[in-house]
Design a protein around this nucleic acid. Structure first.
Lengths: 266, 266
DNA sequence: TGCGTTCTGCGATCAGGGACACAGTGCATC
DNA sequence: GATGCACTGTGTCCCTGATCGCAGAACGCA
């Protein structure tokens, strides 16, 4: 499992300007701020790689018709009942893409960071794409309508090429993850997943360590394991000095150690 | 798991003319025949969906520079040591795409039927794509060189769109398979996989049943399980009258029954 | 500050499958 | 035909991870 495999369902260019989520605000205050910034000062499309071939006029036109929407933590961005009819761009917050089995158990396909594009199956005329998307923090999402997509994208060959590339990367990541799931024990999978996440994670202020912002439960969803088993593994890693833990945050201390474990069979 | 998920790593348009593999010939006799037919009477590219936008000149040009190659059962078409530098088209026989873990265990990503295109990651500039491809029957494969690909494909926008679509389907299949792997017990996964394979399988002459040509071991590779566990499951299915077994061939009798099992949790 | 909700940490029990070890049995080649 | 090999059926042991049940701790909110 690699960084990218998990972090984007499609493009994910980091937008430093898009995540000014300082902590500790009152909720409605924060919401207002997020929306204001996204609506006024910031185009949804600029800086996202996949759109870099659009003309400025196109971008302006699309921005005009695609108001940002706010989702609070736990809210569904799309689901079976409201199928994907738009292309989404995550401006701020975090979104979890997941699938649900008959018995209600879920597997997390990806956890998206700001700058990610999702619902991209629309682009290639995919139907019946039964993923769910849920905000795991207060999130701001821009929606491009199917009409926008049709008008601006399908006509543009360079964009098709970019989409191919992104999908190709996704295929590679999924195949890797599939073999991990099939052939590796939980411990190795956990280490591998942490390494993946680590690559995308922001660094701590003074040390070189990185912090992954996930609860054990969220990590378990990614691993296809139970929360308990994941907790146990994490406690083990912590005891070995590979990581440090804090409610909802995992500090990666020993990348090499994790790498060794991720490669071992047991 | 669906038919398509397993049967193509890329395009797979059935070529009725491409698999005249009558059984019971002496090996070298068969080889000669396969090669002769592929080299002379039959273009590698025609009928394969992804190429349908090429001009006849293009097709002719490519055919001239891409002689069909023969692989006997067990031979590797590509691997880590000889990385993918070409695009392959399977004309006859069957190819298994798989990955290998550190401990030597393998997971089968796909089993390709004639008409499939593989090594397609080359198209999108993918490096380090560590899949292996192995013939599981005597197979005939055409290779397009990287140069051919560059010249004829990357310039053609309609082809990029088709590639996007194919990759998108692959992503959907892989995500489905990943959740199956994570959330479903072997029994359900086996049933689902059989159904998938069933859709692609040829029908028996008189009944409506279809026959899947796989050994338990090959099926196990697809399931990410051991041969023994797979055998046990299959024996169970057979006892319930859902399937009938014969060395290397599985006859699907009760599609609905399998479907029921594939949806249940236990 | 106080309270409730989330997160995390165990522990006990249980079951699905993995690892091995063989024993039959078609099929294919000679 | 005869011989071998590749497939398949089982059986036993064992171990990972799922399940269930709580308990303590940190944090968010009122």
């Amino acid at each position: 499992m690699t960084d990218r495999r998990l972090s984007d369902a499609c493009s994910r260019t980091v937008l430093s300007a898009a995540t000014p989520v300082t902590e500790g605000w009152a909720p409605h205050e924060r919401e207002v701020d997020l929306l204001a910034e996204s609506g006024e000062h910031f185009s949804c499309l600029s800086f996202v790689d996949i759109f870099s071939d659009l003309t400025e006029q196109d971008i302006a036109a699309i921005d005009r018709t695609s108001p940002p929407r706010l989702f609070s933590s736990g809210e569904l961005v799309f689901s079976q009942s409201e199928p994907v009819t738009a292309l989404f761009i995550l401006k701020g917050g975090r979104i979890r893409i997941f699938r649900v089995a008959e018995d209600g158990k879920t597997l997390t396909i990806a956890i998206l960071e700001p700058g990610a594009v999702f619902g991209e199956m629309l682009l290639i005329g995919q139907q019946m794409y039964d993923n769910y998307a849920e905000a795991i923090e207060t999130s701001v999402v821009c929606q491009l309508s199917a009409a926008d997509v049709e008008e601006h994208f399908l006509s543009n060959p360079r964009i098709a090429v970019k989409i191919s590339r992104l999908l190709g990367e996704q295929v590679a990541r999924l195949e890797e993850r599939l073999t991990d799931m099939a052939l590796r024990p939980l411990t190795a999978r956990t280490a591998a997943t942490l390494l993946t996440l680590e690559k995308a994670a922001p660094r701590t202020r003074f040390t070189q360590a990185r912090v992954v912002k996930l609860t054990h439960e969220q990590l378990a969803g990614l691993l296809g394991a139970t929360r308990e088993a994941t907790s146990k593994t994490m406690a083990d890693f912590a005891a070995r000095g590979l990581i440090r833990q804090g409610r909802g945050r995992i500090t990666i201390d020993d990348v090499d150690g994790l790498r060794r474990i991720s490669r071992s069979t047991f």
